[in-house]
Write a protein that binds this DNA or RNA. Structure first.
Lengths: 128, 128
DNA sequence: CTTGACCTTCCAGTTACTGGAAGCATTATG
DNA sequence: CATAATGCTTCCAGTAACTGGAAGGTCAAG
């Protein structure tokens, strides 16, 4: 399979797939002309990576998860640990964004949004 | 005021303050020895920037907001527009993270987390 | 045989800093 | 007063995960 075809199949841009090879996540074969030739196993790994990235795992987490996936003697505890830590970080991020949202909602609703200069949003930002 | 003092007062790292000067958000005076000398107005702007960044505004948004803040003839509608758009993006991000959270919670709770290899998290990532 | 689609590599840019090196300036200590 | 410890300066590189674009080789169709 050429990169265009696997890109279609996995939904990952060709650029991203090349990048994943650069950083050692995959190692597709090469044809005589230098073109990458992806096997089913590569497609499988790329799908795995795409899904993991969709769930927000970092590239380094993906690397770890992929290694665990390929290690038949892994302990599920190791996988769970990675996922739990990631979940915790997502929850932290959500809390942080929700706090921003609340403040912004207040400010936005308090702002007239007309052609006068008075603005509670700016007043809030400028308050000491 | 030297950079160390204003850093303390605003809570912004000196590195960040220098960076803000680099990108033209502030323009502190200089003493004869080359040291930056911050006036009250600089402190004020930095506090404004710190608060805006806390609310998640991008640097470019901050630049816009600062310009509006200093423009006595601004229309509050312009400010509100920036804030509303930012709020929308935050809400998008929250929704995306909440979706990740839900999936991850399911997967984590389904995983035994022991020393056996079976792992629903990996199974999910690997599913086509 | 040429055109267009597809592939290659390499370089630069993105966001908002952060760490570190090399080297002055100032201040505190013995 | 010499020296040592801060504090300040600039500049360079790195971070995360791509993305865009240039320059150029390859392949299938007409």
């Amino acid at each position: 399979m050429n990169i265009g075809e696997i890109s279609e199949r996995t939904g990952l841009p060709a650029k991203t797939i090349r990048y994943y090879e650069d950083i050692g996540l995959i190692s597709p074969m090469r044809d005589a002309n230098g073109y990458r030739n992806f096997a089913e196993n590569d497609a499988h790994k790329l799908a795995f990576l795409g899904r993991a990235r969709t769930l927000g795992f970092s590239i380094e987490d993906c690397r770890t998860l992929l290694a665990l996936y390929e290690d038949q003697s892994r302990a599920s505890a190791d996988v769970k640990h990675v996922a739990t830590e990631h979940l915790r970080q997502i929850e932290d991020k959500i809390a942080q964004l929700e706090s921003m949202r609340q403040t912004l909602r207040h400010l936005v609703s308090a702002c007239a949004g007309d052609n006068r200069p008075d603005c509670p949003i700016l007043s809030d930002l400028a308050k000491s």
